[in-house]
Design a protein around this nucleic acid. Structure first.
Lengths: 196, 196
DNA sequence: CAATAAACTTGACGATGTCAAGATAGGCGT
DNA sequence: ACGCCTATCTTGACATCGTCAAGTTTATTG
């Protein structure tokens, strides 16, 4: 067993990371259907069955890549928040725009994270990263309350709104013209929120 | 070529419909990954390559089933609307609850309709049925306008909200306890809408 | 009744996920 | 220094899948 996790070892040396990188690359280039255990293996220069050792199977690899996706999603949201003004409303809008930017810049990865593919939802890494991403949204929502709903309802409302809007924008790629959400920014559909 | 589209003919007689029915059944029983050309063929009692003749391939079958899904979605929304009070706000809430009920009662079908699977989006049947479903939502939104957004923005907002909420509720199946949206109804997150 | 086209069947191919068994190399105790 | 042990891959096989080409059967039509 390796003592130093980043130490180069045996045949490949840190193959797990190389397989995830290969997977993200395949995802960006060919979409969700191009993400394959065997193609990942080929891209990393190992045999076709090597990934099954590091991940519990295809679902394991997908889960690891999805966890990476949640990490990147959180980073994008934080990045937008830092670049925004400091008042709570601008922060929340910035966080949501980060969410939307991530969804559009990493379409296949976003698909993987929220697709019907059965990931290993009990994977601790996936749970940690997705919880971290949700934490960013949670913090952004904290200063607000929303009409009829309690404080928790506000977060659900924002979450549903931004996630649903991301899904709508995703379909714009198919038929870019005459798309109903063409000239609509997130700020336009964000309802009024009262400070708590 | 058949003259009467519903006439019994040749070997099976109206195999196209039987394949769609078989596909919906597989979807309900085993989820999206169980929906397979060969299994549909077996369930309909024909050879493994028969579906490729009626549909342009797997995508064609998925598209036909998704179109059926939009049809059922519209029916569910209309059903809820009819059972509701007649004032516009109750109608809109009922329509959205129909959307959510459909998403929860037909999980795999909903997955197919909004998954990353590449459907034949130019298929006229799919376009017609999805447009009809959107029309129901459109009518429900028509009496309202939403704060900053125009009349079109209202519809996008409701659409995003209900679709996003459906996605959140979908994940509740994975870990039913401690789910943030457990005791939240759609009415709780629906923002205030002004009559136009 | 024969020709023609529609509606399948049969067989094959390559790609994929998964598993079992084997090979290999690096580290550790002695 | 030497041999073992285990983590890390490789090799080979299998079942399933979508797709295509070619053949077969049935219905319609002239």
């Amino acid at each position: 067993m390796r003592n130093q996790p980043q130490k180069k070892q045996h045949h490949h040396g840190n193959l797990r990371e190389a397989l995830i990188t290969a997977g993200v690359g395949l995802l960006n280039e060919g979409g969700l259907s191009a993400l394959t255990l065997r193609k990942c293996a080929a891209r990393a220069g190992v045999s076709h069955a090597a990934p099954a050792y590091h991940f519990k199977g295809l679902n394991g690899l997908l889960t690891a890549i999805a966890a990476r996706g949640y990490q990147a999603l959180a980073e994008t949201m934080i990045e937008e928040r830092e670049a925004a003004a400091t008042d709570p409303h601008a922060c929340l809008v910035a966080i949501c725009n980060g969410y939307l930017r991530f969804a559009q810049e990493n379409e296949a990865l976003f698909d993987l994270m929220f697709s019907a593919k059965e990931l290993c939802y009990d994977d601790p890494e996936l749970q940690r990263e997705s919880a971290l991403a949700r934490q960013v949204l949670h913090e952004g929502c904290a200063p607000f309350k929303h009409g009829s709903a309690g404080n928790e309802g506000t977060e659900i409302m924002i979450w549903a709104l931004v996630h649903g809007f991301a899904g709508i924008l995703r379909k714009r790629r198919v038929r870019p013209d005459h798309h109903p959400a063409n000239n609509i920014r997130f700020e336009d559909i964000l309802p009024h929120l009262e400070c708590v």
